[in-house]
Amino acid sequence: MANSLFEEKLNSDGFLVTTEIGPPKGADVSEMVHHIDLLKDKVDAINVTDHQSSVMRFPSLGGCLLVKERGGEPIIQITCRDRNRLALQADLLLAYSRDIKNVLCLTGDSVDVGDHKEAKPVFDLDSVQLLKTAREMESGKDMAGNELKGVPQFCLGASVHPEADFIEPQLVKFEKKVIAGAQFFQTQGIFDLENLRRFMQYASQFNVKILAGIIVLASARMARYMNDNVPGIIVSQAIIDELANVEKGKGLQKGIEIASRFIKTIREENLCHGVHIMAVGNEGIVPDILEAA
């Protein structure tokens, strides 16, 4: 029996589409609500990021509650950067109690890349340990082995980086995540489908769903900036060139075109089980992409 709507879809053979929303820096959530309303019926689930790039924002859990409120299906992203094991377990309990059962377990970006560089990096657990912790809680015990009153159930996901320039250690970790209990993976941004193809050839032996990460780029400059500054992103030269060759002001349009093309190809060639669209600040265009795809 499925724990959530999204888990139910995971268990079916349909092509999955998720997207993500970055919460605002501040207490005004109106734009986020607008985006939720725009997207909730067009995708299978909406991720809410957890201080993405270590920049302090409105919390993921709060965003997920809003998604829930607006009738959408949330995936809560939980990173290990800011909370120790007590806080992580507590947040998992809170999420479950509010019917937020889809959890993407992440290690989290380094504090150094964010806007609070002097903060203490916690990393009491890593992503693998977090997955395992969540699974252990499902068996009715917390990490210390104490009984839980009211036992949670989750649909657990994790991330993987098929485009890493040194892939082997990433695959070792991927397997550990599978063993620890990840049911689905949302990959880091894919910019070369060959990489995805190769990765899927390897990953297909595991009983997990892979959603290819699609990042919508707005310009060649943005692509280069992300290459240099955003962890886990390697935009291929072919894509940068394609973006660089368009007229000024038409970059985002080109980015949408590229994203749609990727999604279309993935779906038509059945490369993996779905896509996860990251519009990075342009959440409003996701419907256009889906339309085009």
Binding site: T107, G108, D109, V111, D112, S127, V128, H161, V172, P231
Partner: peptide, 19 residues
């Protein structure tokens, strides 16, 4: 930089750290 125990995070690039 994160002191994690089960393998690299996704931030590694060219063998260097994201931080």
């Amino acid at each position: 930089t994160k002191g994690i125990l089960n393998g690299p995070c996704a931030g590694t690039k060219n063998g260097k750290c994201e931080a």
